[in-house]
């Protein structure tokens, strides 16, 4: 029955992936483009695990195993192979294989019980700043004087590559409060490439005349570009005219 246990665990993991594949929670962990792949992988695991479970509860129906005793022999042969392997490598035996299956339960339980939140100010404080030189040249903003809503990353890229495009233009940014400071706060957004393990940070220094919102809360800030800082990352500044608290966006990463 031990392999029935591993199949059941695999089934749970597949179900967790499928569930993630159809929920917004996915965006806490990986980029949106991964959605179909995560869903498909979950589906494949469900099929494989379901098939394994079924075949453990009924005699094999393959054409070349018409003898009902065949499956018993197969099982014994397989066990023999495994114990051979086990003695050769030390620990790589059937027992080890089932033990390995228990490990797969860790992410399943983490997802079902803990449902880890999206990364926030803790990571923004520590992750490296996003690299502006790489894609800065591609940043562009259609000319005009109407207020425009900008992605934090785009604002940051423009501030270093084409500051002239931002001059005198009211912009709206969405991010979370990383820390409060005299005369304002730091607005941050994490950027991920593949998954939350590779997060880097975009920061904007906000100068505001209102009391700064709580650390970690999501805000929408409208204001005007006010030059870049003298720090190593050339953090841009925004002189805020309006700051509104908003609920966390579906995709927390920019």
């Amino acid at each position: 029955m031990t392999s029935a246990v591993s199949s059941a665990i695999l089934l749970l993991f597949g179900a967790a992936l499928v569930k993630l594949g159809i929920s917004d929670e996915l965006l806490h962990y990986v980029r949106p483009a991964s959605r179909p792949w995560v869903f498909a992988a979950g589906l494949a695991l469900l099929v494989l695990a379901g098939w394994s479970l079924l075949s453990q509860f009924r005699p094999p129906s393959s054409p070349d195993s018409d003898d009902p005793r065949r499956s018993v022999t197969d099982q014994a042969d397989a066990e023999a192979h495994l114990s051979q392997a086990g003695s050769a490598s030390g620990g790589h035996n059937h027992h080890g294989a089932t033990r390995t299956a228990w490990l797969v339960l860790a992410p399943v339980l983490a997802l079902l019980i803990v449902a880890p939140p999206a990364l926030g100010e803790f990571t923004a404080n520590r992750a490296p700043a996003v690299n502006a030189t790489a894609s800065g040249q591609k940043a562009s903003l259609a000319a005009g004087s109407t207020p425009v809503e900008l992605n934090m990353l785009m604002f940051y890229l423009l501030s270093s590559a084409k500051p002239a495009a931002l001059a005198g233009r009211p912009v709206t940014l969405v991010g979370f409060v990383e820390k409060q400071q005299p005369g304002g706060f730091t607005l941050a957004r994490l950027v991920i490439t593949c998954c939350a393990a590779d997060a880097s940070t975009v920061k904007v220094t906000i100068t505001a005349h209102v009391p700064p919102p709580a650390v970690g809360s999501w805000v929408q800030v409208t204001g005007q570009f006010a030059g870049v800082g003298s720090d190593a990352d050339h953090t841009p500044a925004l002189a805020a005219t309006a700051t509104t608290g908003i609920p966390a966006p579906k995709n927390p990463y920019g």
Partner: peptide, 19 residues
């Protein structure tokens, strides 16, 4: 919280490649 997020993220992100 950050640990559990990164742990789950690595597992989820790697799963399609493993499959």
């Amino acid at each position: 919280a950050a640990w559990s997020t990164v742990f789950v993220a690595v597992c989820v992100q790697a799963s399609p490649y493993l499959v």
